[in-house]
Structure formats: C-alpha cells, structure tokens
Design a protein around this nucleic acid. Structure first.
Length: 557
RNA sequence: GCUCCCUUAGCUCAGCGGAUUAGAGCGUCUGUCUUCGGAACAGAAGGUCGUAGGUUCGAAUCCUACAGGGGGCACCA
C-alpha cells in the first residue's frame, strides 16, 4: 500500500509540481480496492477542476503502476479508484497473517490496568478494564513493544480503615485466631461484606467514623513501624494477602497476568516525598493545613494531595506511582486504563506532575472506559453494596451459554464475554447482554470461534498443499481482498490502541469467508490448491486477531 | 452554579471530513440450496444521524448555542 501512495505522491509532484500526500482508503468492492480524494485537494490548491486533475493523475498512474494495477477509474466529484491486479492482491493476502507492525519497536511500554483495591471485591468494571487492558497490551506487544503489565491497588487508605473497622466488629476485637477460622472459600466474600458494613457505618455513625479514621492512621503506622507482630498488624497482613490470592486466582481464570503489583503503601512514601519537594518549589500549595494543587489556571479544579493529617491522599499516591514506574522502567510510553469517573481527577494529577516532570506526562496516555451495566439497567457501586461482581458477569454468561448450547465451556464463555466487551469502542458505558454475548449467531465471540474451528476442519480434511497463488477467480478474489486488509486494520488498531477495530474486521472477514464458502467448493474442486491456501490464510488471520483480543481460537469444537 | 463526556434504525453498536441507497448484529417478514461443520447465503421493512444555526466544493463526522442523559467539582478512591 505504501508503494501505491508513493507512486501517487510522485505523480502529483511531476504533474502539479507540488507536495501533497495521498491518503489511500479502502473502498467498497464495487468501486475497486483503494480510493483517494487527492484530486479534490489538488483542485483546492491549483484551481483546476477536480475531475481534470483526477484524469491526469489516473493517466500517469496507469503507466507507473503497470502490472500492479488492473484498473484505475474516476468517479463522482473526482475520486480515483484503484483496482489491484490479482497477483498483487494474492501477494498481499499471503503476507497478511505474518504481518508485524513496527509502531512500538524497541520501545518499553508500561501498561497499568485493572487496579483493584485489596479489602474490596472485584466487580464487573474490573473485569471490563482487565479485558480491555489485556487486549491493548497485546496490541502493543504485537507491534514490537516490550510490554510490562502492572497493577495498582489501595492496600492503605480510608477504605481499608472501613473494612478493618467492620472486621474487628465481626471478630469482637483483634482476635487473630477467630480470623483464621474463616474458611478459604469464604474469605473474599467476608471481606466484601465488611467493607460494605464499614462504609455504611462511616456515613451514618459519627462514633464509628472517628474510629475508622483512627484505624486508617493505625494502618499507615503499621508501615511506618514495619509492624508484623501486633494482632492488628497480623490481621491487616493476613487479609491483604487473602485479597491478593483472590485477585491472582481471578486473573488466572480470565487469562491475564501482571508482572508487577504496586500496592499503594509502596508508592505512598515516594508520592509524599515528591509532593513535599514540589511544595517547596511552589508547584503544590498549602491550604487549610492540606497540600493542594490548584487546577483552576489550567481549566481544572483544585485537589488535595496531602490531607490535613499529613497523610497522602490518592492523588499523592498516584504521583508516587508514576514516579515509581519511571524509576523501574524508564518507559517510552506509559498507558493507564481506568474507568472514566476518574477522568477529571487524572487530569489534575497529570497536570501537577507536568509542572516538574513534563517528559513523563508527555509519554503517558490515560484511556478511560465507561461502566458495565447489565442489559435491563442494573448499575453498580461497590460503596453501596448492590454491586455487579466480576464473577456475576461470568456466571450469567455461563448460564446463558448452557441455555443456548447445552454445554458448559469456559473458553467459549470467556471468548463471549471478552468479545462482547471489546467489540465496542472504548469510552462509553457498556450494556452487557449475557444471552447475546454467548449467541452462536451474529457478531459474537462464539461465532468467530466457530468460524475458526470450521476453517481448521476443512484444512484437516484436505491435508496441506503449498503451491503459491497465481490467479484468482471472482469468489476467491473477494476473500483475498478482505484478508489483505488485515495489516492495515492492525496498523490502525495499534496506532490508536483501539481493539474494537480488530473485532469489526474479524467479523467482516468471517462474513466474507461465509460468502465465499457458500458458493465455492474447496475440497475436490479443480481450484482446490488455491482455495485451500485462502482458507488457511483466513484461518491464520482469524486466529491471530482473536489471540490479540485474548480469545482462544479453538481447532475444533 | 462551573466543568467534562454522551445523544446514529424497535434494541445494542460501527462509521468520526468525502461519493449513487448512512452500515452491522439482534428482533420482524420473505426467499435459496437434499448443507466440503447451515452456527450459512440472498432479500425486505425500519433512520430528516437529539434540535437550531455556522464553517466547507462537500458535514453523522468540525465550530457555536440549546435540549435530554451521565460523570466530576478539597482533605474518598
């Protein structure tokens, strides 16, 4: 494709004596393979009617691209439509499955996502952000990046105070033995229940609120004293570990993996130190005994980084996290994926860091997504307790899958949920319909998994043949055309870090294949060799794309 | 009140400066082929792209205002 663009740029130089870069876009099959609107842009520059400019360009290109191109036509107000020669198209299709973008070559990239807090439960949003973060990480890795997946979570902070308070109520004091009696399978649930109770008490009961604030300080003190002995510290460390065990188990289940876990307690000191240093330099300011960053000059709002008790808030911890990531990786690019409720907050944090470390902020991208809602309109908030848990989503998908297929297949369920989450552009809220996601028909994960298995089955039946593709009949050409688009789709998905572009393409690819397969016999046909190769290329591209999405492409179902 | 984001077929979403009919899935209706895995293919109905202006040769796509919905706005995360 690049050589086509260069040929057009060259023709523009020769004919019009001007530098203008031609953007080639894929066009509808009836018009050709690629289209460009440079003639209209040229018309704007030279005053020449666009169709005339287009005709002149087309005439030159027919010569310079001879052998590559079957047809170049002008249409509408001055679009130049290019139809590739079959041989050229075949070469492109054959290169598609092995294509590797170089967008992130030799770059160190840190991706941070999921970010659950110990002492709380994993909700549907964590599942969503994990799936999205994993896919984005895969895209970067596929484009040559050295990806480090990290996770951040609040093992200190008010929510811990809340949970600890309720746990102590439940245990009737700092009773380590009683804590140990809680069976392993009930631990995460118990802690989640305590968090909800603690939150309620904090809001409704002044005495409890004071106690929780005190406990919060005691938790920080555990770190200050490096306390692993006192009963209180023992309960804290034990429950923190229970949380990590629970997270690990869940990540293993959904097939994502983190190289490093940053607990807030680990980055808080660096955050506190950094903010304090920059307070002296005037980046942060004191206000009502707290340390704040005044966002108003930048069109943002003011936020507290160190509270009046001298404790770092989430803001300071995030400063510490970003500084810590920099110290650990010296990244070329840092990608943070979170929910969009944190949008304005993050702008303030990044703006404050920009004052003393602008290069770090320049390398940082904050992606945000919306909330997961169950079709039917259930919202969730872990503060209130009526949450949609991550396991609830998977369970709903399992139930729907059993109802639809009569089977209980974890890979199909994960493929369904992941695809349902990823097929939508990142940003807005996501309405998740379990029944639709596991559907075997339409734009779904199981449909694509099946499409892959079906193609593999054909290949198994036929055995392998490798002869190279020399010519294409119209049915084959349509499929080859779609396959040949993959590198361009991948480039765009990587450049913008948008996994849904892969989803859209894979579904269109599967449709193109079904159209082909409906009318073209493969095994036993005189054109078997060519067709088998196309089936193989199709299956390889499908598998490559699904794997980028974190979805298993089964050989058979 | 200030601020950010969203609003495209009955539902869920693509499209994000270009072309005759604004696309897809689900749902609804109708056809095809005795199916190399039919979990298929072909077709119909369904949209003045929230509203009103503006910029442009050209706007669902950019700008402005308004309406409706959601998030954020100092010691929570």
């Amino acid at each position: 494709m690049q050589d086509l663009q260069q040929a057009i740029d060259q023709a523009i130089r020769e004919l019009f004596n001007t530098e203008l870069h031609a953007e080639l876009t894929r066009t509808q099959e009836q018009f050709g393979d690629y289209a460009t609107n440079v003639a209209m842009q040229l018309a704007g520059k030279t005053g020449q009617p666009p169709r005339e400019a287009a005709e002149a360009l087309a005439a030159t290109l027919r010569k310079s691209l001879e052998g590559q191109v079957r047809d170049i036509t002008i249409a509408g107000p001055g679009f130049i439509n290019i139809t590739l020669g079959d041989a050229r198209l075949a070469v492109m299709a054959q290169a598609a499955p092995g294509y590797q973008p170089q967008t992130f070559a030799k770059q160190t990239v840190v991706t941070e996502y999921s970010d659950p807090n110990p002492f709380k439960i994993l909700h549907a949003g964590h599942l969503y952000t994990s799936v999205v973060g994993d896919a984005i990480s895969n895209l970067i890795a596929a484009a040559g990046g050295e990806v480090h997946r990290v996770n951040f979570g609040g093992d200190v902070g008010l929510h811990v105070g809340k949970t600890m308070w309720a746990m102590l109520q439940e245990l009737g004091g700092e009773d380590v033995d009683k804590l140990q009696q809680i069976p392993a399978e009930r631990r995460s649930e118990w802690m989640a229940k305590c968090y909800v109770a603690g939150t309620k008490a904090y809001e409704e009961d002044e005495t409890a609120k004071d106690a929780i604030v005190t406990l919060n300080k005691r938790v920080y003190q555990i770190f200050a004293d490096n306390d692993h002995e006192s009963p209180f510290a023992h309960i804290y460390w034990t429950c923190r570990q229970w949380s990590y065990d629970y997270f690990d188990e869940f990540y293993a289940r959904i097939g994502t993996h983190f190289e490093k876990y940053y607990p807030e307690s680990e980055v808080a000191p660096l955050g506190l130190k950094t903010v304090t240093e920059q307070l002296a330099k005037g980046v942060y300011k004191e206000s009502d005994n707290a340390v704040v960053f005044e966002g108003e000059p930048y069109g943002l709002h003011t936020r507290v980084f160190i509270n009046s008790h001298g404790l770092p808030t989430y803001e300071a911890k995030d400063v510490g996290l970003i500084m810590q990531k920099w110290q650990d990786y010296h990244f070329d690019r840092s990608v943070i994926i979170t929910g969009n409720d944190i949008n304005e907050y993050m702008k303030v944090v990044l703006k404050s860091i920009e004052q003393f470390a602008p290069d770090l902020v320049a390398r940082t991208t904050h992606f945000t997504h919306g909330n997961v809602k169950l079709a039917g309109g259930v919202k969730m908030s872990s503060r209130k307790g009526n949450i949609l848990r991550a396991v609830d989503v998977l369970e709903a998908a399992h139930d729907a899958n059993k109802a639809a297929s009569g089977r209980d297949d974890e890979q199909a369920v994960l493929g369904a949920v992941k695809y349902a989450f990823l097929k939508q552009r990142i940003g807005a809220d996501l309405i998740y319909d379990p029944a639709e996601s596991v559907s075997l028909e339409g734009n779904s994960g199981p449909y694509l998994q099946y499409a892959h298995a079906r193609a593999r089955s054909i290949l198994r039946k036929a055995g392998t043949t490798e002869t190279g593709i020399t010519d294409l009949d119209p049915l084959e050409r349509s499929l080859a055309r779609k396959i040949s688009e993959y590198p361009e789709v991948l480039d765009k998905a990587v450049a913008e870090l948008l996994p849904h572009l892969i989803c859209t393409y894979l579904y269109e690819l599967a449709q193109a294949f079904n159209r082909f397969y409906e009318h073209a016999k493969v095994v036993g046909d005189p054109r078997e060799a060519t067709r088998l190769q196309l089936v193989g290329l199709y299956a390889d591209v499908l598998r490559h794309g699904l794997e980028l999405l974190g979805i298993v492409a089964p050989e058979q179902l």
